[in-house]
Amino acid sequence: MQVEVCAYSLESCLNAQAAGAHRVELCGGLGEGGTTPSAGLIGLVRERVELALYVMVRPRGGDFVYDALEEEVIRRDIDVAKKYGADGVVLGVLTAQGQVDVVRTRALIDYAQPLGVTFHRAFDLTPDPLEALERVIEAGAERILTSGQRASAPEGLDVLRQLVIAASGRIEIMAGGGVNAGNAAQLAATGIQALHLTGKAFRPGRQQYFPAGISMAGEVPDERSILYSKLESLRELVEAVR
Rank of each mutant, 00 (worst) to 15 (best):
R150E: 10
P127C: 02
E11L: 14
I42S: 05
L187T: 12
E25A: 06
V55M: 05
E223F: 05
G34K: 11
E72D: 14
E142A: 09
S9Y: 09
L115M: 14
L115F: 12
V73D: 05
G29L: 08
R48C: 10
K83W: 04
A86K: 01
E134H: 13
A212N: 13
M1N: 04
V136P: 01
E72M: 08
S147H: 01
C6D: 03
G31W: 01
V73M: 12
V90D: 05
G85M: 01
Q193W: 06
Y209D: 04
I165D: 13
T105L: 04
T190V: 08
I165G: 01
G169S: 13
E142L: 05
H120K: 06
G176L: 02
R203Y: 01
L157R: 12
F119N: 06
S168I: 00
D128R: 08
T190Y: 01
R58Q: 02
S38A: 09
I226R: 10
S38W: 11
K82Y: 07
R206F: 02
V103N: 02
S215L: 07
L231G: 07
E138H: 04
Y84P: 00
D128E: 12
G88Y: 11
Q186P: 07
I137H: 11
G98M: 04
R48G: 00
L10R: 05
G148H: 05
I192S: 04
G20R: 11
L44W: 02
A166K: 15
R161N: 02
L145A: 04
G218W: 08
A81D: 05
I173L: 10
V89G: 02
E138L: 13
E155F: 00
L125R: 06
V49D: 03
G92A: 03
E71I: 15
S147P: 06
R224M: 12
L195V: 06
M216V: 13
S9P: 07
E71R: 15
L163A: 08
T36L: 07
L237T: 15
L30D: 03
L30R: 07
E219H: 13
V89S: 08
A167N: 12
V241M: 14
S229Y: 10
S215R: 13
D87P: 08
M56P: 07
F119M: 06
S38P: 08
F202I: 02
F119W: 03
P59S: 06
A212D: 14
L14I: 13
T95H: 10
A96V: 15
R46V: 05
A212H: 11
V5D: 03
R75Q: 14
G205E: 09
E138S: 13
R161D: 00
Y111Q: 11
